[in-house]
Write a protein that binds this DNA or RNA. Structure first.
Length: 592
DNA sequence: GCTTAGAGCGCC
DNA sequence: AAAAGGCGCTCTAAGC
């Protein structure tokens, strides 16, 4: 283990954890080009990147070849896992590892450590994503990102993508990084391997699906909302709430879904509110508040995860979310459709293990505090988490008086609280843990200047865009007004809060990727005639493994061991532990 | 009729 | 008093 905590690399990736490690004899890359549905070009490269063989294959030939070569543990190199892997999985072919050129390209293009490489200097090309479609609520923060992708509208043209040329460029970029900093290169290499492993996991989870009981889901909806309406419209119980809201506000027929109408009715009834949001309503004393809050809760359930959602997303008692690996700038995953990362507690009971199977639900406790403790080598903060609950550890260390205060103070540090109780408590942490808090403070200052920050493994933050820089320039002019200065300061602080959180959230995402990658390999080894335990769900710092009941203990051990592996892989022997809560349940609502 | 912005709220 | 990071989704209202 290298002093920096990253496992030593000898150029290639293999290991017990399946993420990284030692080169084996005959290690090889197999690059797939063309298309999985049409003709494929298969090119075998040796460890040095030299072409060993190349052939053109039809689809059946491709499947045969993958099956034949996989036992040699090659790293499959392709442009986009989400395009290739489902075809293989549909044919019953799982692969151990891959290199996803698109995902790795994105990381390397933005990485500070790889700034002076040919890959980073190249004009935007087909390997750069088209700009991510903004969601309806698209944030102001990222409307202004100076993104490499902006200039690229060729991103969707796979014809312009040469996987071998791109792979060669990426390897050259890593070599160039290694020439300046072997540590930076080995970390980036680990990140690329972990990201690619994540891409495999995402497709495998989608292929398996999350076991979902439509009967339980339907029963829960019926219980809370009333029977499913035959011809649309509001379910009975929801309508009853709407009616009573209308009566209490003396506005018969009021549609509570109309913010405009609702706000007007609330004001007319004498409530002093400026919006219809929950937090503001809660402070009001009026008989309408309770039914209105209840209506909002049920209405949201109905529209977001009601029968329509069930019809759209559940097939054959499986929920198959489309995960978007690295879909968040920090490296967290997103999903496309189905809102899989926002499954409300109300419907989690519908996630049910099959007969003779169980759900092993594991989540990492206070992950981000442990991450910043390890990144900053803050032994004191790491020690506070040693016994399990890090927040309680802060209380026991006499840093704050209660656990809720510990949590509030920590969130303030991670998010950059400026007002309120959180901001008042945070300085206690800064005094007790100058290293860990100093790390996030430094990240904030860096962002405020408009500079990039990077995660532990080297995923870098985007830089602010032209509007941001224009505002800073305007404030620096001699004739700048107070308004100019206030605006510039506001934008700078906003960006600083983003970069502050980026290092913690992004490194936590890397730990989670390594955890899952290692777990996946361990689970494969557990498969026997009783069945194959497999990852079924991932939520930032939490996983669900669907497992044969008989293997519950082995799966639990695998989850713990994989977490410890991930900690060592990233942070070496630094004494931080990544505490887990692990429970085996028959349905997801029983966890937590 | 279609698209888009804002509000609001679910998850971490 | 609505503060503090990252998202996705659905709804209404408004504009084309």
């Amino acid at each position: 283990m290298a002093a920096n905590g990253v496992a030593e690399f000898d150029g290639q990736l293999t290991s017990p954890a399946g993420v990284t490690g030692r080169r084996q004899n005959g290690y090889m890359f197999i690059v797939l080009g063309g298309s999985p549905s049409g003709r494929t070009t298969l090119t075998e490269l040796n460890a040095a990147g030299a072409t060993v063989a190349t052939e053109s294959l039809s689809r059946p030939e491709l499947l045969r070849e993958v099956a034949r070569r996989e036992p040699e543990h090659p790293r499959w190199v392709w442009d986009d896992t989400s395009q290739w892997y489902p075809v293989l999985l549909a044919a019953g072919l799982a692969v151990e590892r891959c290199h996803d050129l698109r995902l790795c390209h994105r990381i390397l293009r933005l990485a500070e450590a790889a700034r002076d490489t040919e890959l980073a200097r190249a004009q935007p090309n087909a390997w750069d994503d088209a700009p991510l479609e903004q969601t309806a609520s698209g944030t102001a923060l990222f409307d202004d990102v100076a993104d490499l992708a902006e200039a690229s509208d060729a991103g969707s043209d796979p014809g312009a993508r040469d996987p071998i040329a791109e792979f060669t460029l990426q390897r050259a970029a890593l070599d160039a990084v290694a020439a300046g900093s072997p540590t930076a290169a080995s970390r980036l290499q680990l990140l690329l391997a972990a990201e690619s492993s994540g891409a495999l996991i995402a497709e495998e989870m989608r292929a398996r699906g999350l076991p979902w009981s439509t009967a339980v889901h339907d029963a829960a909806l019926t219980e809370l909302l009333g029977p499913r309406p035959q011809f649309g419209g509001r379910p009975r119980k929801l309508q009853a709430f709407a009616d009573s809201i209308g009566e209490l506000l003396q506005a018969p027929g009021l549609n509570p879904d109309s913010q405009h109408d609702l706000l007007r009715a609330l004001k007319r009834a004498g409530l002093s509110v400026t919006s219809t949001s929950k937090w503001e309503l809660r402070s009001q004393k009026h008989p309408v508040v309770e039914p209105l809050l209840e209506y909002k809760k049920l209405s949201r359930l109905h529209s977001a995860n009601g029968w329509a959602w069930m019809d759209a997303w559940i097939r054959d008692e499986r929920f198959r979310p489309e995960y978007v690996v690295g879909g968040v700038v920090t490296g967290r995953w997103a999903t496309r459709g189905g809102g899989a990362l926002q499954l409300p507690a109300q419907v989690r009971g519908a996630v049910r293990a099959g007969d003779g199977w169980t759900l092993v639900v594991a989540d990492a406790a206070q992950l981000e505090p442990r991450i910043i403790a390890a990144m900053s080598r803050d032994e004191k903060m790491a020690a506070a988490g040693r016994e399990g609950d890090l927040y309680q550890g802060l209380v026991n260390a006499g840093v704050v008086d209660t656990r809720p205060h510990a949590k509030l103070a920590m969130l303030g540090a991670l998010y950059g609280a400026t007002t309120g109780e959180s901001a008042r408590l945070m300085p206690k942490l800064a005094r007790a843990y100058p290293r860990a808090i100093g790390l996030v403070e430094h990240a904030a200052r860096t962002g405020e200047r408009g500079d990039q920050v990077s995660t532990w493994l080297g995923r870098s933050s985007p830089t602010p865009g032209p509007t941001w820089h224009a505002a800073q320039r305007a404030a620096a002019e001699a004739e700048a007004t107070a308004v100019d200065e206030r605006r510039a300061r506001q934008l700078a602080r906003d960006w600083g809060r983003f970069t502050r959180n980026f290092v913690a959230q992004g490194t936590a995402a890397e730990w989670a990727l390594c955890w899952m990658a290692g777990l996946r390999i361990r689970l494969r080894a557990l498969a026997d005639e009783r069945g194959e335990p497999h990852l079924a769900y991932f939520l930032h710092d939490e996983v669900i493994v669907h497992s044969p009941e008989d293997l519950t203990d082995a799966v639990t051990d695998a989850i713990s061991a994989a977490a410890a592996d991930a900690g060592r892989l990233l942070f070496g022997s630094f004494p931080v532990n990544f505490a887990l809560t692990i429970v085996a349940v028959s349905s997801y609502d029983q966890a937590k």
